[in-house]
Nucleic acid binder design. Structure first.
Lengths: 102, 102
DNA sequence: AAAACTAGTTTGTGTTACAAACTAGTTTTA
DNA sequence: TAAAACTAGTTTGTAACACAAACTAGTTTT
C-alpha cells in the first residue's frame, strides 16, 4: 500500500525492469526467447561488461535464466525469459500504460 | 520493422524523463499544467528533497519551468511543462511505444 | 607458435537517487 | 507574545547504479 494516494503510481514501476538496458533486454526477450549473449549484444548495442552485469541482475531476481552451453566448441550462453520474468514484464507494461494514460 | 528481426533502440529513451520520479512528474504535468509543488508531492508520493532535486534536473534541461510566487503570504512554486518539455514527452512516449511493441 | 578472435567476467570510477538535516517564513497555541 | 508547529522548499551525505576498460579463458587463423 502506498503511503499517500498518488494518481501517478511510480511505485508500481518495477525498477529492475525499468533500467534502460534491462528494459531493452526484457523487451527483446519478450519477442525472441531464448536469445544468445552475442545476439543481445548486437540488438541492444551494450558493451560486454555492461550486458553481463545487467543479465546477472535480471537473473538474481529470477526474470531470466542463463543457460551456459556450447555451440560446437565455442561457449554459448542462451538467455531465457522465465515465467516469472514474463509475468513481471506484463505487470511492467500495465503499470507504464496506466502511468502514461494518467 | 520485420517481426523476425526486432531491434531495441534503447538510445532513443530519454534518460532525463525515464527516471522513475521524473517520469511521474512529466506524466502528471502532461495532464495537469501547471501544478504546485505540494500537489506534485502528494501525487507522486516523493519526499520534498527528492522532488526538489528532480524538478531542478528537469528545469536544467528546459522541460519544465518553476514559477516562484505567492498564494496569499505563503510561497508557492508553480511547475509548468514547457513546449520543449511537451515535445520531449511526446518523443519519449513514441520511443517507449516502439520499444514495447518490438 | 604467435596473433587475432570469440565469449564472457571483474573491477574501477563517475553519476544518480534518495532521505535526513537544514533554512526560512507563517500560523496557531498557551 | 513567546514558543511550538506547520508550510514550503533546498542542501548535503551516502548507498546504489551504469558503464567501459581491463582482464580471463579458450579457439581459430596465419
Amino acid at each position: 500500500m502506498s503511503p499517500k494516494n498518488p494518481s501517478v503510481d511510480i511505485e508500481a514501476i518495477d525498477e529492475v525492469i525499468h533500467g534502460r538496458l534491462r528494459l531493452g533486454i526484457m523487451a527483446y526477450l519478450s519477442a525472441v526467447n531464448p536469445a544468445s549473449f552475442p545476439e543481445l549484444l548486437d540488438k541492444t548495442g551494450a558493451s560486454n561488461g555492461n550486458l553481463s552485469t545487467h543479465l546477472s541482475k535480471l537473473e538474481a531476481v529470477g526474470y531470466i535464466a542463463q543457460e551456459k552451453g556450447y555451440a560446437g566448441k565455442k561457449p554459448q550462453t542462451l538467455v531465457h525469459l522465465t515465467d516469472s520474468g514474463r509475468d513481471a514484464w506484463i505487470n511492467y507494461l500495465t503499470a507504464m500504460q496506466s502511468l502514461i494514460n494518467i
